[in-house]
């Protein structure tokens, strides 16, 4: 039976999308930076950007809710609400990150990074629990959101280290691997949506998004990274372009999923069963 009324949801707009974009990047950035800098603390700029991004995402959500001065109520339902869990993890993330950076405790910063990863996982589960939106409730969205967040984190770290004239030799390979994993997760997500009979409009929007995402956001960065690691001469510009493309394409996908591909379940007539 065909569903009718599968309109685009109007409850969460670009501000909610901003939380998934910036929160995912910031949380993952501190995870990768925290562990890659051990036994030292990450560069202060990197930690600051990670916290600023997560904070910006949460600020955008706060700006969207109808009763912003009741924001503390968000912590009331940890038993089943992934939004409550996300908020709780965010508090732990900030507390540990600030403590670790201020007191120069590398392990504490790394644990904050783990909280950052948990934050991204909570975001993925927030979407998966949205039963009314077929594009979000699809289980394959969880690995996709995790993969996009981690890829953005690695790309951002690479860009920030380039800005402060530092480098981690193996980070290029990590980014390369993550871009591949993200592309596989995206393809798997699209395939699963099609199998689940998601709204045609959702599939159509995502298919249109897939081409620039896979070409500009995945293939070109992969080529640039391979060129960079295989060339004997310095090719910083290639890796910087690859990082920017990997970062922006991840944001583009999440923005699309949250705002433009989020068609509602719609209404359908069931098959009338016999009288009991």
């Amino acid at each position: 039976m065909t569903n009718t009324g599968q309109v685009l949801q109007a409850n969460w707009d670009w501000r909610a999308a901003g939380n998934f974009m910036f929160g995912g990047s910031g949380g993952s950035l501190l995870l990768i930076a925290g562990f890659s800098s051990l036994p030292d603390v990450p560069h202060p700029l990197v930690a600051a950007v990670a916290m600023a991004l997560v904070g910006l995402g949460l600020f955008l959500v706060w700006a969207e809710i109808g009763r912003p001065w009741r924001f503390l109520h968000v912590f009331f339902h940890p038993r089943t609400s992934w939004m409550t869990r996300e908020s709780g993890v965010a508090v732990a993330f900030f507390a540990l990150a600030i403590t670790g950076v201020v007191l120069s405790l590398p392990v504490v910063v790394a644990v904050a990074g783990v909280m950052g990863l948990l934050f991204v996982y909570c975001q993925a589960r927030v979407l998966k629990a949205s039963t009314g939106i077929p594009a979000w409730r699809q289980p394959a969205i969880v690995p996709l959101i995790l993969a996009t967040g981690l890829t953005e984190g690695a790309a951002l770290l690479l860009l920030l280290l380039a800005a402060v004239q530092e480098a981690i030799p193996w980070l290029d390979y990590i980014l390369l691997g993550l871009i591949v994993v993200r592309a596989v997760a995206a393809a798997s997500y699209l395939h699963a949506l099609a199998r689940a009979n998601a709204p045609e409009a959702t599939i159509s929007v995502l298919k249109r998004t897939a081409i620039p995402f896979l070409m500009v956001g995945s293939l070109i960065p992969l080529i640039l990274i391979v060129l960079e690691v295989s060339m004997t001469t310095e090719a910083d510009i290639a890796i910087i372009v690859a990082g920017i493309l990997a970062l922006v394409s991840g944001w583009y996908v999440k923005f699309t999923i949250v705002t433009r591909a989020a068609h509602v379940q719609g209404f359908s007539l069931g098959v009338p069963g016999p009288a009991s």
């Binding site: 409850n11 969207e64 809710i65 109808g66 912003p68 009741r70 109520h73 609400s81 509602v264």
Partner: peptide, 22 residues
Amino acid sequence: DLCIGCSYCAVACPYQARYKTD
């Protein structure tokens, strides 16, 4: 009095039954 107006319930509802107006 408890609701914060986050609209998470609205996107979770498969029956488009929830509304929010400011």
